[in-house]
Amino acid sequence: MERSISNEELELLLNDVLEVHGYDFTDYSRASIHRRVNRLLMLDSFPSFAELRFRVRNDAAYLKRFVEEITVNVTEMFRDPDAYRAIKELVFPQLFSKPFIRVWHAGCSTGEEVYSMAILLHEAGLLHKSLIYATDINPEVLERARAGIFPLSQMKQYSENYIAAGGTEDFSSYYTARYDKVIFNENLRKRMVFATHNLVSDSSFNEFQLILCRNVMIYFDKNLQNNVLHLFDASLEKLGYLALGAKETIKFSGIIPKYKQLEKHKIWRKIK
């Protein structure tokens, strides 16, 4: 049987991480975070819960790894091509007249979606007047996002996604391949700002025309989801847009009366 910790041990660990290090995972959905902690217990070969707990409490370097591994950092370029197509066709036309466009990617992980958005903005002729703020709780994944280096082996899939999203250029013109990696073009990265931001504890830091937070809130409980949606609401200018993941909704939150959904897409416009 897989090595695993009990529900009570999980609560002890999450309380330690909050009290000792200030990272608050106590409002994360339990089933997923429990599975992540059990996975880490196996990956790092801890003989028991006590050793894991000691390491998390006392080793600041290990804490970084803990946070990165219990949060999910799986992402891809142009995931859900339909969502990107909708942004391109329904959102961008409303942004053309803006002198300056601020986009916030909340929980951007290793940045694949940030580069996707930069490419779409470029093709719409909007990138030069846009700034994409890309934030995540993990400093390490932001370093990778900033570098813009991704595995060459993924490019075939990403290219297919890009075409399905309505991309008009040759996808390979956006990167340079070296051995088994590609690096994305500097002109895309020039319009990105990377910073750590914790959706649980940090506040609003700017006002945006478009906020994307896709497949991040699925890991939060309902109460935390509601708090984060209020944070987004406070960070969105009137008539701005909020884009969520394919299975996420604002339907059950307090902000719903101020928003109008774009057809069946997981994109809402702030109308009040």
Binding site: S29, A31, S32, R35, V74, N215, I218, G245, K247
Partner: peptide
């Protein structure tokens, strides 16, 4: 279960989605 997500069940017998590895 929707495509491209793992599904987990919480103690309160609700579904959670997860897009991990």
């Amino acid at each position: 279960v929707p495509p491209d997500y793992h599904v987990l069940i919480e103690e309160d017998r609700t579904f959670s989605l997860d897009d991990s590895e």
